[in-house]
């Protein structure tokens, strides 16, 4: 069971997830402090480690639109959050798969703050409301990278295979 700890509407931009003024901070070990920095209460709760790992951010369409900044994925990943959204912007989805941030495409998801969700391979079940919403699988090309343990591991395997030929 996972708790919804933040909800957002459509078109949440990477400027909202990780404001540009913190972009000089790049290392995944350092980005978590600025997660949703302008959502002061949520950021403070994250910094105080108030949420269990695997807690959920629920959002609408086009989550992560805008800048390609990878900090937007690494900052959420650093807090072990899962993002369930009606849809994701391409570069953000790609960055998330590359870095291991768990993203779930759930086109009809309805959930409020503090709702309890059960994440199954095919559905998101909102235990609080009793409703279940189907999941759209990630594109196979992206799933292959997740299965390899992220793009660094994937590329490393390829590198070793190619340069030792």
């Amino acid at each position: 069971m996972a708790t919804v700890v933040f909800t957002a509407g459509d078109d949440v931009s990477t400027d909202a997830i990780y404001p540009g003024r913190f972009m000089a901070t790049v290392l995944p070990s350092e980005t978590p402090q600025f997660c949703f920095a302008d959502e002061k209460a949520f950021n403070a709760a994250l910094q105080q480690k108030s949420f269990a790992p695997g807690s959920v951010v629920v959002a609408g369409q086009n989550f992560g639109c805008g800048s390609s900044r990878e900090q937007a994925a690494s900052t959420l990943n650093g807090h072990d959050l899962v993002v369930v959204a009606r849809g994701f912007a391409r570069i953000f989805l790609q960055n998330s798969c590359n870095l291991g941030l768990r993203t779930i495409i759930c086109p009809t998801i309805e959930a409020g703050l503090n709702d309890e969700l059960e994440l199954t391979p095919t559905h998101v079940r909102n235990v609080t409301t009793g409703q279940a919403f189907p999941i759209v699988p990630l594109p196979p090309a992206r799933q292959a990278i997740i299965d390899a343990g992220g793009l660094i591991a994937y590329t490393r395997t390829r590198l070793v295979a190619e340069r030792s030929r």
Partner: peptide, 8 residues
């Protein structure tokens, strides 16, 4: 692309 993809 993101930075990790560029590294790839």
């Amino acid at each position: 692309v993101g930075a990790t993809e560029m590294a790839s």
